[in-house]
């Protein structure tokens, strides 16, 4: 456990000691700010029945952030260590592969959540100046961030996998972007297909849009939580297999 914490500290240091980390945070903050100004414009023109968090989600900047930021955050994780050779020094110590994958994933998720913090500030500003407080309560904010966390888990585990299979950061970012876009397209497909047809029993689970929309409204469905967590575990498992693969004969 203490070795895991040591590794996690090092991962977080790699994010926060580098200019890249702050560039990513700034870019995400910019997109959140854009969506904030859009939300303010909507709220100013006509009153909306939607909760503020759902308004934020409906600006679609949300997907831009997830699709672009996750590959950029994760591309470094394994690819850079492999390219620079530190992967070799790392893997010849007494740490297990599981600890390495877990620490890298947790570090990236933490950084991802930190990058989302400006949204909380935006919500507080809206909440502070809104005349009525029904549009914003702890439930909707909590639901929104739970959704952000779960979708983050999925896309960052995808990114981990992409980074583990190559030693070029560029290739890692592209692979994880393409995988992310495929998931995104699958969500379109899931939305377009008629519900309850036998063939597509699994497809509706990929309807990321409606799921995230419910989270933004403060509706939490355990089936969805389990779907996201198991999908993330699946990709982390694949990552682990890739990391182990150098030991295969």
């Amino acid at each position: 456990m203490s070795i895991f914490l040591t590794l996690l500290r090092r991962e977080l240091a790699a994010f926060f000691y580098s200019i890249n980390g702050y560039l990513i945070i700034a870019a995400v903050a910019l997109l959140i700010g854009e969506s904030f100004s859009t939300v303010i414009a909507i709220l100013g023109s006509d009153p909306s029945p939607m909760p503020v968090t759902e308004l934020f989600y409906s600006t679609n900047y949300f997907w831009m952030i997830v699709l672009l930021a996750a590959p950029v955050m994760t591309m470094r994780l394994f690819a850079l260590e492999k390219a620079s050779g530190t992967f070799e020094t790392l893997m010849t110590t007494q740490i297990g592969d599981v600890a390495v994958v877990a620490a890298k994933f947790c570090g990236a998720i933490f950084f991802y959540l930190v990058a989302w913090l400006p949204l909380l500030l935006c919500l507080l500003i809206v909440g502070h100046y809104a005349r009525q407080h029904t549009g914003l309560d702890a439930g909707t904010v909590g639901g929104m961030f739970l959704g952000i966390f779960l979708i983050g888990c999925l896309f960052i585990s995808l990114g981990c996998f992409a980074s583990a299979i190559t030693n070029s950061q560029m290739a890692a970012a592209m692979v994880s972007f393409v995988l992310g876009m495929s998931l995104f397209s699958l969500a379109f497909l899931a939305k377009a297909l008629p519900p309850n047809s036998d063939l597509t029993q699994i497809i509706p689970y990929f309807n990321l849009f409606d799921q995230m929309d419910s989270f933004a409204r403060g509706v939490v469905d355990t089936r969805v939580i389990i779907f996201y967590l198991s999908a993330s575990f699946f990709f982390l498992f694949l990552t682990l297999r890739v990391v182990e693969s150098r030991r295969w004969k």
Partner: peptide
Amino acid sequence: NPLYPEMRVREYLKFRARLKG
């Protein structure tokens, strides 16, 4: 001789010592 360029010498050695149990 791969190293983490952004770490400080002492910090790096301490990190490595911890990883080595």
